[in-house]
Simulated scan of single mutants.
Amino acid sequence: MTLSWNEMKKRALEFSKEWKDETREIAESKTFWNEFFKVFGISRRRVASFEEPVKKLGNKRGYIDLFWKGTLIVEHKSRGKSLDKAYSQVMEYFYGLEEAELPKYVLVSDFSKFRLYDLEEDSVHEFYIVDFYKNIHLFSFMTGYVKQRYIDEDPVNVRAAELMGNLHDSLKESGYTGHALERLLVRIMFCLFADDTGIFTKDYFRDYIENNTKKDGEDLGLHLSIIFQILDTPIEKRQKNLDYELKELPYVNGKLFNEVLAIPSFDGNMRKLLLKCCYFNWSKVSPAIFGSMFQSVMDEEKRKNIGAFYTSEKNILKSINDLFLNDLLNEFEKNKNNHNYLKKMLNRIKEIRILDIILQRLIQFNYPKSYCA
């Protein structure tokens, strides 16, 4: 489970105190980075590897100090060495990486300082290790925390629909259609969100697919069916001899995985399409438009213009904040330590019903809260 920000700050402060005087790259760098990942509650061995071989320009061979595919490259230097040179070295590695493996972040360090490059935002942040805990928010990508942006037609949402649309079309062309296809894609989308938002261990679903299924996709459908079956089984009712990786899966109630579906047949290209979806950062996709985005995935015409077919999160919040959400949030803050009150509040929330077309009209005509009541 994802750690709280307070817990991560506490661990970052302890990390800084332990390592602030270290200088020896060769002797201690691997331990340094293993401990760095523990700050975020992540086992480095599960997600990233040391000394990853990569081909550089001119057919030369290089070794990435620390590589988390699709997320992060780390280059480590001895204290006082140039961080600019370290970054230039990382850029040479990009030549030999597949598109899906390209990192979103580059982190360079000489023990005394961190410099983090956010390649998507084109930003750079540098700070001393003693200030690590003050800058912990910069590493939200480590655990799936993200700062939400409310944009009417967020390109991230559009790209997510395109990726899932390609997988949908490929499955449909293979003959896997109708209700089974819709249900399969909903389950896959849940797993993609779970991978990046702390429901699963970070990148569990991606790593499982990449490491446990054949490249030709022959056994992918069977592995997906096994994952879905386990997600639908309470932990106490599972077989005791399950593989270690499968034991990590949580129980998901709500009957999302309850129905038995025909096992889909994948090929190598379809497996690549699924892995492309896995490498996408789903924590940046707005959950508020999940349903509408899924509808656009199933409809090729809507997929071409997703922005015209869903009520954006910005407009949803414009309506529901004043209608009831702000009141609920205020009540929650006042009573969040009252267990009995929270149970009653949860029951109230379950009874709330919203008709989307009414929201659209409210937005269009700017009706006040008193009218809606």
Rank of each mutant, 00 (worst) to 15 (best):
N335F: 06
G291D: 09
L224A: 02
S88Q: 13
K302D: 10
R187M: 13
F111N: 09
E14T: 11
I289G: 07
E35H: 11
E210Y: 09
L163P: 14
K240N: 15
R115D: 02
R353G: 08
K215M: 04
H223A: 06
L359V: 14
T197C: 11
K38E: 14
F294W: 06
Y367W: 11
K134W: 00
N166S: 12
S265K: 15
R303F: 03
L72M: 02
S109A: 08
P368Q: 07
I230P: 13
I230M: 09
E259G: 01
N338C: 03
P264E: 09
E25G: 05
H125A: 09
K85T: 11
W282A: 05
N253F: 04
L57N: 03
L242H: 12
L3K: 11
E98N: 12
E51W: 01
A180W: 02
Y93T: 04
D203C: 01
L185F: 04
K344C: 04
W5K: 14
N166C: 06
D203L: 06
E153D: 14
R159E: 15
D322M: 00
H137V: 07
A180E: 15
I151F: 08
I42G: 03
I363W: 03
D84E: 11
G70D: 09
K336M: 13
P234L: 07
E153H: 09
